[in-house]
Design a protein around this nucleic acid. Structure first.
Lengths: 191, 191
DNA sequence: ACGACCGTTCAAGAAAATTTGAACAAACTG
DNA sequence: CAGTTTGTTCAAATTTTCTTGAACGGTCGT
């Protein structure tokens, strides 16, 4: 009788010889994407599609990555919303086919535009509100309180300036223009 | 009898009037840091310290942010390991005092050096391994398989080139030198 | 050396997220 | 139109991460 150590080579699937490197690359991208705040599976799915010359069906993707169909549907849908994967169509086929958007630069740009830039702006706004709140407290304060609030105000405005500089930098990136980190540095120089 | 809506102003703490803007700013930074892959509390703690003219004790931090002492210890320790907060000392005092590293640029650089750069390198290595795996499969393949593997090899090497370009960009950032996103773009041009 | 004070670590509990199977809906086929 | 096939949504279950209180260990003052 076979031991438990025997890999269960299910179904009648003879897996292609390139499956191992494929999964290795997919997993590496999955980690990267996860670190970047996306679902692991988004990176994996995108990579499998990117490495495939042909568009693929959800069933093939599920089989390749050993995922349930709902997991595929979920992450693939998100990829489509990010424009990282396109639904394609094949005459005579009922299933949907998917293919990877192959311009990584385009994808990077889109994420920075839609997500990072938004987050920075929310942060900028929050600092601005905090500063406004602070102004309103400047009524009957004794000397030491006044000094304390003044310090805080200065630091807050530095955080504001830094985040605005960050916003500009990301805007430059998105525009494909040259980025000068010195602009960030210089915010902190004159104190 | 007082309703539940009455804010419980616990203890005998008369909270300073700048507490609200302080917390608002701390929370904004907490979100940013969380998005960036750190603990929420790290951003909050750092901000409270950054906005304070005086070094603070763990007890004061816990009180300000309404955290348990273990939560403070955990996240503060991590901040110290990242060099984002320094332990200071006061003559005659037994407690430890903490103050924020106030150069945000220095902090950014350190994180990119230690963390992002490492991650990119791991990714580069994984792609390289995948490519090596793939080379080894090139034995008795029929024509269509050969074409398939060849496609995959091309795409893999493009991913490699992209991640190496990413590494270079981060290196430039860390060095404070000018970054040209076009280098990333150009990887995908000649196909 | 003893006791009080601080800070860290740990394991248990709580909260948040991912994952899955099943139910549902939509589109096509015969 | 009934029956398949395909894809999505939902809630339950699992896993992972975060939080907490208690135990531990070290340091200082008496």
């Amino acid at each position: 009788m076979p031991t438990a150590a025997v890999k269960q080579q299910n179904h009648n699937d003879s897996k292609p010889i390139w499956r191992d490197p494929e999964l290795r690359a997919a997993d590496a991208m999955g980690r990267l994407m996860e670190f970047w705040g996306f679902r692991r599976h988004m990176g994996r799915l995108w990579t499998v599609l990117y490495l495939s010359p042909e568009a693929m069906t959800t069933a093939e993707l599920a089989e390749t990555l050993q995922l349930s169909s709902s997991a595929v549907s979920l992450s693939l849908g998100e990829l489509v919303r990010w424009g990282a994967v396109r639904k394609t169509w094949r005459p005579g086929e009922r299933k949907d086919f998917y293919q990877a958007e192959s311009s990584v630069w385009k994808l990077l740009r889109r994420v920075y535009e839609r997500r990072e830039l938004n987050l920075i702006r929310e942060t900028i706004d929050a600092f601005a509100e905090a500063a406004r709140d602070l102004e309103e407290t400047r009524d009957g304060l004794d000397a030491s309180e006044r000094r304390r609030v003044e310090f805080m105000r200065k630091r807050l405005s530095r955080l504001s300036a830094l985040s605005r500089a960050g916003e500009r930098l990301v805007q430059m990136l998105v525009a494909g223009r040259i980025i000068n980190p010195a602009e960030l540095v210089s915010v902190e120089d004159h104190d």
